[in-house]
Design a binder for these strands. Structure first.
Lengths: 220, 220
DNA sequence: TCAATAGTGTCTCTTAGACAATATTGA
DNA sequence: TCAATATTGTCTAAGAGACACTATTGA
């Protein structure tokens, strides 16, 4: 046992897992079951364990496996934040990830022994978050908006088969603003990301809606 | 002394420092003065020291202070890479930064006691790099290109005062392709980032060229 | 005068925003 | 028929690519 300075900092992965419910962008929060910040709501996270994790993405997936019974459809790195004061345990580095969960998997939350979990609106948070997680969430939302604003299609937020209106609603939920139907569909007509499912429609008290799916090889 | 597994990984910052010389994008390499990979060329880097660095950006700045006698004009994070096999010392996390140095500061390289340094063309590398630094450099170049491709102006690569042709040459060096003069200048006419310096011109055996500078508050 | 580079204009094509019109179903 | 939503079209303005043109200097 020595008192040498802490040469290696705490490294963790934190995930902003998004989904869509009622045309509203949701993010998964967990209630921390142990100190520090026990009882506070926070983004799911895990401390990097070099003996177990192949890389930080594996750490992020491990952080979600405690909360979600299915694999996420999309996971990507957003940024790394670091500093002495962001965690009371000392100098820490957090790598923030953004993940997407299809809307039909939104119920796939497992009850952890220690942590509660809930979906909340990503734009107007109802609770204060632990540490600097509000800033982490903000950067994840910004990255997601940026990408969808550049016309990337967040198909991983939808079911395997979806209508163009559902896709438009998902984009609107991400962007926080309505989109023009005509222009939106005009862009999709020339998109390489989608394909029509021949003969499959959603019926209802109106004109049937064509079903689409992600084209093979699609990457958000 | 114990044989417990290595719970905290090696964390470092690596910097791709760019500048422009002869209308060509250059990146600074250092020759490693000690193991591992002693003698190999690599991106400048430093291991995070929580007792000294306020955050990873400070680590990046410290990594450059050994090589460069002036402050860099721009520093931003690109990505974080991690894994067990990228460094022979064990599991490591590297946060990659991209930095810009004005072309008139390109000589401001200090000779380190242990490491040699050189500028090389960023697009066609003349040497093999240590570890996974070729991939790190590639992501930094991609991030820079992406940004300039979205019409961000890399004014930090230029001197304080510059002509529009110099700016165009810098953008072309970053993008690796020529740009149309008319279209380029048309965009700049409505840009908030530039301002004309009244009455200042560069003379020569041709029509004088108006000098410009970055407008106050400009951010790349 | 000419070479050399600075700076502007012009055509066309594509894209995006706003909005209107038409289509097809179940009730 | 009608309400409700799907789907398409149209007008216009802004932006980008390609290219031609004019401007101003030193030699």
């Amino acid at each position: 046992m020595s008192t040498t300075p802490q040469l290696k900092p705490l490294v963790s992965a934190n995930v902003a897992l998004f989904s869509v419910a009622e045309d509203c962008l949701q993010v998964l929060l967990v209630q921390r079951g142990r100190d520090p910040a026990k009882g506070c709501w926070a983004l799911p996270g895990a401390v990097l364990n070099p003996d177990v994790d192949a890389d930080l993405e594996a750490t992020a997936i491990r952080a979600l496996h405690d909360k979600i019974s299915v694999d996420v459809a999309h996971l990507e790195q957003v940024t790394a934040v670091s500093g002495r004061s962001r965690d009371p345990r000392g100098f820490s580095v957090a790598v923030v990830f953004l993940a997407l969960l299809p809307r039909d998997r939104i119920q796939a939350i497992v009850r952890s022994k220690v942590d509660a979990a809930q979906w909340v609106s990503a734009s107007k948070l109802s609770v204060k978050l632990a540490f600097d997680h509000e800033a982490l969430l903000a950067s994840a939302v910004a990255a997601l908006r940026d990408k969808v604003g550049r016309h990337a299609l967040p198909l991983q937020l939808l079911s395997e088969k979806f209508t163009l209106t559902e896709l438009q609603r998902a984009c609107e939920a991400v962007l926080g603003q309505t989109l023009d139907k005509g222009g939106f569909r005009r862009r999709l007509r020339t998109s390489e990301d989608l394909e029509e499912i021949p003969g499959e429609f959603v019926l209802g008290p109106q004109r049937p809606a064509q079903l689409y799916r992600a084209r093979h090889g699609f990457r958000f």
